[in-house]
Design a protein around this nucleic acid. Sequence first.
RNA 1: GGUGAUAUGGCCGAGUGGCUAGGCAGAGGUCUGCAAAACCUCGUACGGGGGUUCGACUCCCUCUAUCACCUCCA
Length: 485
Amino acid sequence: MKIKLYNSLTKSTDEFTPINGNEVRMYSCGPTVYNFAHIGNMRAFLFADFLQRVLRVVGEHDLKWVMNITNIDDKTIRDSQPGSNAWLGDMGKQTDNPLENLLNLTKFYENEFLKDIATLGINPEHFYSMPKATEYIEEMKDLILKIIDNGIAYVSDNSVYFNVNEWRKKDIYGKLKKIDFDNFLQGARVDADTYEREQASDFVLWKGKKENEPFWDFEINGVNVPGRPGWHIECSAMEKVLLDLPFDIHTGGIDLKFPHHEDEIAQSKAGYGIEPTAFWCHNEFLEVEGQKMSKSLGNFFTLRDLLNKGVDAKDIRLAMLSTHYGTKYNFTFKDVEATRKARLRVQEFIYTLFDEQFGTKEVSIDDLQNSVFVQLADDLHSPKALAAIFTIINNHNAAELTKESKDQLINLFAKLNDIYAVWEITPRPAEEKQEAPVEVIELANQRWQAKKDKNWGLADEIRAKVTSLGWTIKDTKEGFDLVAN
RNA sequence: GGUGAUAUGGCCGAGUGGCUAGGCAGAGGUCUGCAAAACCUCGUACGGGGGUUCGACUCCCUCUAUCACCUCCA
């Protein structure tokens, strides 16, 4: 099925067709590994994951999915410097080698990041590559040299800057976001990885070496300019190496539109002569309990914060995938709980499909699949897709279906789970006969006897006692089950 | 202050010029001694005020409120 996607570049929802046959090459801006990722970060990664899964399952495409790891920037350097209070014991001992410190800190957070996304149902096997910035320094230098050769970059104060004014003579600067050039600061440039968003200033491609910072030698026109890459250049170089240009889709959070992605476009075109991609997809932000999520406000949750509160990662995943990626998602614990109930209802339906009891009703499986896929193909409209899934459940009593229909539905839900990845496509697991304490079993047996004797008062009394011990008695025809609360 | 967005039933959350979102909660029912679980059935809606229209929740104006960005952030 053809997929339609909202393209930030054209600002319209366009039909998507891969450049090379059936293969989709997709690049997603990944994390800067200087801290535990929070759930706002996670939304961006889940969006990218959701997109690539829909492309696989609904679009029936082959995927080459790259997500980078930014392991060198202002923050990672800052936090890895000796004396930094961001340094954790698990990172090892700090040395007097700045690069070693940097790599130790970022390696630690990279590992935590990989654990987190796996917990959230992102399949590591789906990645074609997860390049780290420090492993592509040479390619970045090559790109910078190309831009210099083309007259769009210059060396100043031992750093290299992209000349926006010069570039504007050749191409549009402000393709993703309109730029107010009335506020353009003539000759101003910015040394940091980030700078004032409304101002289009020359941005840094290569930052001159500073005391106690990691650096690489860089010979420009016979002169060594030791330093390290700027933030934007990293993606431009890595995506060229790993996916070649132009590739099919570039994803990222909406805040990356400017300056990061705008600069990426300018750099790639100024250096390689080709823009990275014709399809830019951005996800909206996440709020928590109606408030914006922000590191500086400190009102953010990491994934592990939520897990520690007893939240199931599957419910976080489904909750985030229950909203369209292009609208703000308001994360609330109440919503996650509602999502959990909804998720388990679908799970119950799937279990029932596996039960060895069959009826006579049949389903029109193509229509059902279509009802969901059409929504996913329409710019990943997950809310509608989920509504369609619940409509299937509401319209079909699983226990009344023929074996063939059940099998077909199992196949359908398996496909859906290749996208949502929050269910188990298996028969109902045997009721977990958790080892109840002896006293609980004894009480339950007493109650069963009382019940058989029709001594309801005593039976209820004992059941209350069992409940207070943390177990629920579920009566069946032949006896009872004990389930831990 | 500037820019941009949003206001939908108890809560969350889609959508459309006239015709059903969906989920959670709630109500009723089946089952059960009663429960629990499961399953079935069922409400209530479109921020205020104008206007356009045969007809607006859906278009226009206005008011009000909320939020976001303009600072690090996905």
